[in-house]
Amino acid sequence: MGTELNPAAVNPAVVKPPSMAQGFNAMLRRDLVVAFRQRSDLVNPLFFFIMVIALFPLGIGPEPSTLQKIAPGVIWIAALLSTLLSVDSLFRQDFDDGSLELALLSPQPLFVLVLGKIIAHWLVTALPLILVSPVLGVMLYMDADTIQATLCSLLLGTPVLSMISAIGAALTVGLRKGGVLVAIIALPLYVPVLIFGTGAVEAASMSMAFGGQLAILGAFLILALAFAPFAIAAGLRISLNG
């Protein structure tokens, strides 16, 4: 500021709106900063994930063979539920303080900004959960190969879950009772990711190749990246403009 001449002051027509990449970066950085200032939102989904998984052995019994058998499903369903829990806060705050409307009015297409928000949200809520999953895998008696498959499948699958639940969150952001509704909307759409995610882990636990399942998860990720931001942007527009 001040060191260079502001072109807008000379000729307003010269001002170029920030590019799409700049809008994306700004949104990503802003959401990360906001998340790190409210650390409770950051750690709560993680603690939820750990606690749900820790309750399973208490409910079912500590036999290693049983736990090994249910481990893929337990880890995946816990990941799915904690995504669902955290996604309610994805647009809520921005909706309440009006910054979502500003995003809608900004020169960048809404889906680019939405993508930035979702990636920030995934980095903050899902990535820590993936990082602790090996520890939980050890507690559920997984072997090294299975833990590796769990890591890879969560890495590819949780962004898809975030995208899908963001669609639900976008459609319900204007409603008071959003929470359960998002779950009802998003859970049936999770099914393919759940099937192939647990499929990869199960294949690994039987020491079979799990590359195929990971490839399909990757395909889901590409599909979700390509189409979900448009659905989310459309949902936000409807929620805001009625």
Binding site: I167, T172, G174, I185, A186, L187, A231, I238, S239, N241
Partner: peptide, 28 residues
């Protein structure tokens, strides 16, 4: 379950037009 989600969303939004448009996105 998908039908139930669509119906729940449609019932939750009061304004008929925005309910219809939100439901349209979800059903697509």
């Amino acid at each position: 379950f998908l039908y139930i989600g669509v119906m729940a969303l449609n019932m939750a939004i009061e304004n008929a037009q925005s309910a219809a448009r939100a439901t349209a996105v979800l059903s697509i």
